[in-house]
């Protein structure tokens, strides 16, 4: 089968790198939230996990 035929007969799909980027974005968001929470805990209670 020719390439034109192949392009006409297949659905348009995103490349897999896009999903990797999306997944990376999710990871960044999670890390940013965790860092923000840790920063807040340290600034307010001067510790991250210890309960006074």
């Amino acid at each position: 089968m020719s390439p034109a035929m192949q392009s006409r007969g297949k659905k348009i799909t995103a490349p897999d790198n896009l999903y990797t980027v999306i997944l990376a974005l999710a990871l960044v968001a999670v890390l940013a939230a965790a860092g923000f929470v840790a920063y807040q805990c340290y600034t307010q209670y001067e510790t991250i996990f210890k309960i006074q």
Partner: peptide, 28 residues
Amino acid sequence: LIVLLTVASIFLCGIVVTYVASAENYKD
């Protein structure tokens, strides 16, 4: 699943950040 995971992560991270930012400083 990747998309859902990403959306859910962003949503939950937004909620957590909003909660932490608006939480009171009980120590003070």
